[in-house]
C-alpha cells in the first residue's frame, strides 16, 4: 500500500473543505473495507484520505413520522441490522443489512461507503431503491437531495461530483398497505457475494397488485427498475401463471452482467427464479409446489 495522508475532520463542512483543498488527490474513507482492498491491490493511490470516522452526527439512525427513517451514511450494516427503529418500521432493511457479507464486514463497512463504492455485487441498493430512498449529498457549496433512482449510474459509478459526501439516506414513512420483499441469491451456499438480488414493493389490494416496484440488483451493472414487469403486474390478480410470466419478462428485460460468478444466461435464469418466487410470495402463493 502506498503512503498517504490521513485526515480526520470533525464536521461535515470541514470534510468537504478538505476534499476541496486536496482535489483529485483526495479520497473519502468511510468503513474502509472496500477501499483498503483497492489500496492494497494498488488499484488506487490517493495522496490523502479524508476519514469520516469521527463524524458522530453521520452515524445516527432515527425515525420521524413525517420524514420517515433517517440513516446516517456512516451507520455500519450491523448498526442498521440491530437498530430497534429499523427493525420496527422497516424489517426488510434490517434483514437485508443483517445478511450482507459476513459479521466482521457488517461491523466495519458503512451503508454510505457501500452506496458510494457502487460495487454491483452487493445488497443495499436494490432494497433501498424499492423503498423509495432519497439521499442527501453535501458539497462545499451546500446540500442537495436526490432520489435513489438517479444515484446509481453504472458499474462503480454514482451521481456524485468530486468533493461531495453522501451524508444521509432517507426512507419515506412506511405505507402500511405496501409490503416489501427482498431476496438475495448466492451462486453456491459458500459464496460471499450475491449473484443476483431482487426487491419487490407492492400494494396488494384485494388480490390485485398496485404501485408495484420491482428492482433487480447484483446481476446488473447498477440496480435496474424493471418497468415492463411493473406495468405487467399492475392491476393484475396474481396467479401462478402470472408469476411465471412476470419471471420470464424480468429475465428478458434485465441487462445482465457477465463475470466469473455467472454469465448472462445464468444471471437471467436466477432473476427469473427470484422474480417468480417473490411475486408468488407477495400473492401468498406457494412457489415451491410447481415448476
Amino acid at each position: 500500500m502506498r503512503d498517504f495522508h490521513y485526515l480526520e475532520p470533525r464536521t461535515v463542512s470541514e470534510a468537504t473543505a478538505m476534499l476541496a483543498d486536496h482535489g483529485e488527490e483526495a479520497c473519502v474513507f468511510a468503513g474502509g473495507t472496500a477501499l483498503i482492498l483497492a489500496l492494497r491491490q494498488r488499484m488506487m493511490a490517493p495522496g490523502v484520505l479524508v476519514s469520516l470516522g469521527q463524524l458522530e452526527e453521520m452515524r445516527a439512525i432515527r425515525f420521524d413520522p413525517k420524514e420517515g427513517l433517517l440513516i446516517g451514511a456512516m451507520a455500519r450494516h450491523n448498526d442498521i441490522a440491530r437498530s430497534k427503529i429499523v427493525r420496527q418500521h422497516y424489517p426488510v432493511v434490517a434483514e437485508m443489512a443483517g445478511g450482507l457479507a459476513n459479521p466482521q464486514v457488517r461491523n466495519q463497512a458503512t451503508i454510505g461507503g457501500n452506496l458510494c463504492y457502487a460495487d454491483p455485487s452487493t445488497d443495499p441498493p436494490a432494497c433501498l431503491l424499492a423503498l423509495g430512498a432519497e439521499l442527501t449529498i453535501k458539497g462545499q457549496h451546500g446540500a442537495r437531495r436526490i432520489p435513489m433512482d438517479e444515484f446509481n449510474v453504472d458499474y462503480f459509478t454514482v451521481a456524485m461530483e468530486p468533493g461531495e459526501i453522501l451524508t444521509q439516506i432517507r426512507l419515506p414513512p412506511p405505507d402500511q398497505e405496501v409490503t416489501t420483499f427482498y431476496r438475495r441469491h448466492l451462486r453456491t451456499p459458500a459464496e460471499h457475494r450475491p449473484v443476483a438480488n431482487l426487491a419487490l414493493a407492492v400494494r396488494n389490494r384485494g388480490g390485485a397488485f398496485e404501485d408495484v416496484r420491482l428492482i433487480v440488483g447484483a446481476a446488473t451493472p447498477a440496480p435496474q427498475l424493471l418497468d415492463g414487469v411493473q406495468d405487467y403486474l399492475s392491476g393484475r390478480s396474481v396467479t401462478a401463471e402470472v408469476a411465471a410470466e412476470a419471471a420470464d419478462r424480468a429475465a428478458e428485460e434485465m441487462f445482465p452482467i457477465s463475470d466469473g460468478r455467472g454469465d448472462e444466461g445464468f444471471r437471467r435464469q436466477v432473476v427469473r427464479a427470484l422474480t417468480r418466487r417473490l411475486v408468488a410470495e407477495a400473492a401468498n402463493l406457494d412457489w415451491k409446489e410447481t415448476e
Binding site: 453456491t188 451456499p189 459458500a190 459464496e191 460471499h192 457475494r193 466469473g260 460468478r261
Partner: peptide, 28 residues
C-alpha cells in the same frame, strides 16, 4: 460444489479466497 479454479489461457483468474470459494460454516 463450490471450488473451481478458473483459468484463461493458463492464467489463474480467481486467485483469491473471495472468488475461489471454499465452504463456510453456514454453507454445510
Amino acid at each position: 460444489l463450490c471450488e473451481e479454479l478458473q483459468f484463461e489461457e493458463g492464467r489463474l483468474m480467481n486467485g483469491n479466497l473471495a472468488d475461489y470459494t471454499m465452504p463456510t460454516a453456514d454453507s454445510v
